Simulated scan of single mutants.
Amino acid sequence: MTEREITSPVALCLPGGDLNPDAVGWSRTPMHDTSGIGGGIRDRGRNKRWEYWAIVSPTHIVSITVSSLDYAAVHGFWVHDRRTGVTIDRGKVGGPWTATLPPSLGAGPATAKMRGLEIEITEVRGATKITAKAPGLSVCISAEREAEHESMAVVVPWSKRRFQYTVKDVVRPATGHIEIDGVGTDLENAWSVLDHGRGRWHHNVRWNWAAAVGHTDGHLVGLQFGARWTEGTGMTENALIVDGHATKISEQLRWDYDLEQPMKPWRIVGTDVDVTLTPEYDHRSRTNLGPIGTRGDQVFGTFDGWIRVDGARIEITSLFGWAEDVANRW
Rank of each mutant, 00 (worst) to 15 (best):
R82H: 01
V74A: 13
Y71Q: 12
H80C: 03
P102E: 11
A107R: 15
D81C: 07
I61Q: 00
W97T: 12
P103H: 07
T100A: 14
A112V: 06
Y71I: 11
A72D: 06
I88D: 01
A112M: 07
R90F: 03
G108Q: 07
Y71N: 13
P103W: 05
L101M: 13
I61E: 01
G76N: 09
L101E: 11
V66A: 14
T111I: 12
H75I: 04
A99C: 10
L69G: 08
W97S: 14
L105K: 06
I88R: 15
G91S: 15
K92A: 15
S63T: 03
I64T: 08
S68Y: 00
G76S: 13
S63N: 11
G91P: 06
G108P: 10
P96Y: 09
A112C: 14
T98A: 14
L105H: 12
S104M: 04
V79C: 02
L69V: 10
A110C: 11
A107Q: 14
G106W: 05
P96D: 09
A99I: 04
T84G: 03
A73F: 02
A112F: 05
G91A: 11
P96K: 07
F77C: 03
G94Y: 04
V62P: 00
G94S: 14
G108V: 10
P109F: 04
H80D: 01
T100F: 06
A110M: 04
G91D: 11
A107F: 05
K92T: 12
D70H: 11
A107S: 15
T84A: 09
S63V: 13
K92I: 12
A107Y: 07
L69Y: 14
P103M: 09
G76R: 04
D89K: 02
T84E: 02
H75F: 04
V86E: 13
A110E: 03
G95A: 13
G85L: 02
A107T: 12
G95F: 12
T100W: 07
D70I: 05
R90S: 10
V74R: 10
D89H: 08
T87K: 15
F77G: 00
L101P: 07
A99S: 15
R82T: 00
I88S: 07
G106V: 09
D81W: 00
P96A: 12
P102G: 11
V79P: 00
A110G: 15
A72G: 06
D81Q: 02
R90C: 12
G85T: 00
I61D: 00
V93R: 08
H75R: 04
A73W: 00
G85I: 01
L69H: 11
